[in-house]
Simulated scan of single mutants.
Amino acid sequence: MIGAHVIVGYANDPGGRDALALSAAITRVTGGELTVATIYPPNSPGLAVEAQANLAHAAEELGPVPAEFITFESRGTGRGLAVLASRIRADLIVVGSADGGQHGRISIGSTADHLLHMSPEAVMLAPAGYLPPEEPARLTLAYVHRPQCDAAVEQVAQAALRLGVRLRLITLDLRTDDQGRLRDDLALAVRLAWESTGIEAEAEVAEGHDVAAALAGVEWLDGELLVCAASEDAQPHRVFLGELAMKVLRASPRPVAVLPRGFG
């Protein structure tokens, strides 16, 4: 289960504070380590000092929450977080929504875009203005019948079992596929979750003319987390999201975790 060591990319802005709150909530539940990192560009002594000041703000925000604070030099924030995560053996990178996005939704900036196409570790994004509850409520997996999603069913079911929360599998019906086949595929995924963990997953087909409309008709609990599997085009042990999954991520009103190919 991800969350044994979480690294959060922090900047002293709304997205950075959202990500910090989410990462602290995750480690509170998992009992994992928390590393707060600010990335700054090479040959920029002024920005290096600013990075240290950012971490001082982060420490104030966290209060008594235990954490390690690191500044790291890199030509890009996403690249720096990915490299640093590998060095410290973090298993989850958390970032916030880019400035200017819709409240309650995820806006993908350059940092998130890099991580969603290159990260060696799972990536989680917080919607703008997200306030994490005290306890998790349910894990939802966006399911499509393909090997990466089938593997994710088992991994997410195991995480739900350990956390003691409900599991839901959602398939999108954008009125371009045979709904009977979609429901049959979903039933097989529910059976896979049961056979691997003994969890009886909820199953839902979300219908709409596009991804945003389909997800708008879905009930979302406080404390819910949406999980997406990497695309089949992803390199081994890398995150890579295709066009449809990107639309799901942008339409989600809850944090989204993206698993790398071969996770677990």
Rank of each mutant, 00 (worst) to 15 (best):
A58E: 13
Q148V: 13
S196C: 07
G3H: 03
P14S: 11
S97H: 01
L81A: 00
R162H: 12
R17G: 06
V123N: 06
G101T: 09
P136W: 12
V239D: 00
A203S: 15
G32K: 05
Y10G: 04
H5C: 07
K247P: 01
H237W: 09
G80D: 01
H57Q: 12
R75Q: 13
A214H: 05
G164S: 02
V36W: 02
G217N: 06
P45H: 04
A214L: 01
T111L: 05
Q102W: 06
A59M: 13
H114I: 10
R89T: 10
P133W: 08
A206C: 10
E204V: 13
Q102V: 15
L115P: 04
H145S: 14
L163Q: 13
R175D: 13
A4K: 14
H145C: 11
V211R: 08
L225M: 14
G262F: 10
G3K: 05
A201I: 00
S252M: 03
A160F: 09
L169I: 07
A24R: 10
T38C: 12
P132G: 02
G80C: 00
L84E: 06
A187I: 05
A245C: 09
G78R: 02
E50W: 04
D177F: 06
E200I: 03
G129R: 09
L161G: 07
P253Y: 04
E232A: 14
D177M: 11
L188I: 11
A21V: 00
A257P: 01
E219K: 05
L226P: 12
V6A: 04
D91K: 10
G208P: 00
L92E: 02
A67H: 08
R166E: 15
A160C: 08
G16Q: 01
N54M: 09
L92A: 01
M118C: 11
S110Q: 12
L244D: 04
I106K: 05
M124N: 06
S44F: 10
T176D: 12
V6H: 04
R166G: 15
P133S: 07
R250N: 01
G80K: 10
P64E: 14
V248L: 07
L62H: 06
R166S: 15
V256N: 05
A25T: 05
G208K: 08
V123Q: 06
D233K: 14
A90F: 11
C228L: 15
I106P: 02
G180F: 06
A160W: 09
G264I: 02
A160H: 09
G109N: 01
P127N: 02
Y40C: 00
W220L: 02
A58Q: 13
L115M: 07
V29Y: 03
L62V: 04
G101K: 08
L215W: 03
I108T: 10
Y40H: 15
S252W: 00
